[in-house]
Amino acid sequence: MRLRRCGPDAVLVEVDSLSEVAAARAALTGLPGLVELVPAARTVLVSFEPGSPGSRQVQAVLDQADLSAAPVGDSADVTLPVVYDGADLELVAETAGLSVDEAIALHSSADYTVAFCGFAPGFAYLTGLPELLQQPRLGNPRTRVPTGSVGVAGEFTGIYPRSSPGGWRLVARLADDAAALFDPTREPAALLSPGDRVRFEVVS
């Protein structure tokens, strides 16, 4: 673990794995004057109100935390109804050496966890993707990925909360009657938050 200074009121905590990110995030939750707590793939950014003593407590809190232990938190369980008709479903199945039905069964039977969010409001990077489905991005990213598309890229699977450019291999889409992943007029605006556990439910 290494702490890197990030201006006068923030610290970037650098660790070695996604599980350490989750543990560090949990340990830092609730520090005084905390403004942002932003997990990413190998880091947690923690920022404080200007002049708050919190930033000086980060090292001590992390020294006392067991980063190898799974975090205990107030995470939610979310089930997302999806239709497996993604434009890259056959490519993903073929790359995995599976039939399309087997690829669907594999993706929809796994338990996922929100490791972090980013790229766009409400875009959650889910870990727990079976190894056969861990595949590279498209060589030629799409200029427009439709809202609700479910894709895989590297060790992650994720859902596009709104239409945007993107290079993830698309396997499915959120069902038409599913709640929007992100709606700034709703409380809470984001369906998925770091630490939440996610399952996909097959609908046709």
Binding site: V35, E36, L37, V38, P39, L45, F116, C117, G118, F119, A120, P121, G122, F123, F182, A189, A190, S193, P194
Partner: peptide, 9 residues
């Protein structure tokens, strides 16, 4: 709206 960066906001 600080405090929502963990949601990508």
């Amino acid at each position: 709206r600080p405090g929502h960066a963990h949601l990508g906001v």
